[in-house]
Each structure stands twice: as C-alpha cells, then as structure tokens.
C-alpha cells in the first residue's frame, strides 16, 4: 500500500462530544421550547407589505425558533460540527436543495391567481 493513500492522522480522529455539551444543548432546546410557546400567546402583529400581502410575525418567530433548535440538534447531537467536510457538505447541500424545492413551489403557488383562492 503506497504512503500517499493513507489519510492524514489528525483527520482520522473520532471526536467524542462531552456530556457537558449535550447537557447545555438540552437546556438550550428546552428554553427555546418554552420561548416559542410563550411567544405564541403574544400577538406580535403583522407587516402590511402590499395590499393583499401581509406577513404575520407569530409564524415567522415560531419557525425562526424551530430553525434555531434544528441547527443545535444537527450541529451537536448529530455531531455535524465535529464531522468531516464531506458530511458537512452533504448536509448543507441537502438542506439547500430542500429549501429550493419548497421555495420554488411556494413562489409558484402564491403568485398564481392572486386573491382568487
């Protein structure tokens, strides 16, 4: 076996995430859960972008908190923060394609037949 086929030593190390990190993430996730429930009981108002086009802040905040929680789970519980570039690239491109698929579908649905549905 030739030498250059051997991956670098430090690239091989399997990172073990400590229970302290897991505990901190658990606490953060529970706090964010409390926060999103609390926020849902408050009327955060709406932004009238254009006639017939209104952005309600409550769902925006709820989804923003959900995205934050997801990021914490993916990075720490699922070890992506400590993974190789291949895993990071796979996860990132997967989410990118997912957002493109949903985003393009939504722009199509929501700009067709304005106000007739």
């Amino acid at each position: 076996m030739s030498e250059q086929n051997q991956p670098k030593e430090h690239d091989q190390e399997h990172h073990i995430v400590s229970p302290v990190t897991y505990g901190a993430i658990l606490l953060a996730l529970l706090i964010f859960t409390g926060l999103t429930v609390w926020a849902s009981y408050i009327d955060l108002g709406a932004w009238q972008i254009a006639p017939g086009l209104t952005l309600f802040w409550n769902p925006v905040v709820a989804l923003a908190i959900a995205c934050t929680k997801m990021t914490l789970v993916v990075l720490f519980f699922m070890h992506v923060k400590y993974s190789r570039k291949l895993t990071k690239l796979t996860v990132a491109s997967g989410f990118f394609v997912f957002i493109v698929l949903i985003g393009m579908t939504m722009t199509d649905y929501f700009t067709r037949a304005w106000g007739r549905w």
């Binding site: 999103t36 429930v37 849902s40 009981y41 408050i42 009327d43 955060l44 309600f56 409550n58 769902p59 709820a62 989804l63 908190i65 959900a66 929680k69 997801m70 789970v73 993916v74 519980f77 699922m78």
Partner: peptide, 25 residues
C-alpha cells in the same frame, strides 16, 4: 441510529409550531 432518532426529533420540532402554535394570532 442516534442520527435517525435526532432526525425524528427535528421533524417534531417543526410539526409542533406549525400544527399547534401559529394559529393563536
């Protein structure tokens, strides 16, 4: 298996606000 379990958790993290929370206001 942990990855799978966390994934199922993430799905619920989004189901919860979408189904339960965002319709109060």
């Amino acid at each position: 298996f942990g990855l799978y379990w966390h994934f199922v958790d993430i799905v619920w993290i989004f189901l919860f606000p979408l189904l339960y929370l965002i319709s109060r206001y």
